[in-house]
């Protein structure tokens, strides 16, 4: 024989959604930056979210680890480690296009940079008179020095980056922007016009435009 117990009436669990909210709030508050890696050979890091905005501040390389700390449309604000020693300069931030990023694969070692050599310093050492090429040149009465001089002209990674930046090359883009003059180009055009005017009328010469001054300073 079973005794039918009268179950006490349960209160509606009103606290459950509130607890959920709390957990969600706590989770969101504790959520840190998302680590991603660069999936391209290299990609520029911009100061502003946009190809035409701001300046290119740095270059990220294949496999480099970048922490996404903010996002705006297709752009991600990333924090990355630099080679600087001081803590203040150790981490830098910038904007990078989302298409350049990928989830890091477990166990995958970061790939090396495409050009980590610094100039001709790390090229295979030429063993001078004992080399085959030297003896061939000697036998044929050729001057090998010209070719060895050419080897010394190999650019450093910094030079190559500057060269690519100057020509706007090596950027990953699904489509190239219209080659309309950008704000910087317009400013430089204006400055060149003012310079021309100044040349025509030297007595009315005024202070050099800001952009021109900056460029000169940079050079």
């Amino acid at each position: 024989m079973t005794q039918d117990r009268v179950q006490p009436r349960r209160r509606p669990r009103a606290w459950l959604p509130a607890l959920g909210l709390v957990v969600l709030a706590a989770g969101l508050a504790c959520a840190g930056p998302v680590a991603q890696v660069l999936r391209l050979r290299c990609a520029p890091i911009h100061s502003e979210p946009g190809f035409e905005k701001g300046a290119t501040t740095d270059t990220a390389y294949l496999g480099q680890r970048l922490e996404v700390i903010d996002r705006k449309d297709d752009w991600r604000k990333v924090r990355y480690e630099t080679e600087k020693v001081t803590q203040a300069e150790k981490f830098k931030e910038g904007w990078i296009h989302a298409s350049a990023l990928a989830e890091p694969q477990a166990g995958a070692a970061p790939a090396s940079q495409p050009w980590v050599r610094d100039g001709a310093a790390s090229l295979p050492r030429f063993d001078g008179e004992h080399s085959k090429a030297a003896r061939h040149a000697e036998a044929r009465k050729l001057k090998l020095a010209g070719i060895l001089d050419l080897e010394q002209l190999y650019p450093s990674a910094k030079d190559l980056d500057a060269f690519l930046k100057e020509g706007k090359l090596g950027l990953y883009r699904t489509d190239w922007p219209v080659l309309a003059p950008t704000a910087a180009a317009k400013a430089s055009e204006k400055s060149s016009k003012t310079e021309k005017k100044d040349e025509k009328a030297p007595e009315k010469k005024t202070a050099a435009p800001k952009d021109g001054g900056k460029q000169e300073g940079a050079k």
Partner: peptide, 16 residues
């Protein structure tokens, strides 16, 4: 290293 050495000799020949 071999490729480079061959290349040097060939390039010196062409430059000559």
């Amino acid at each position: 290293a071999e490729e480079r050495e061959i290349g040097r000799a060939v390039a010196a020949d062409l430059a000559g």
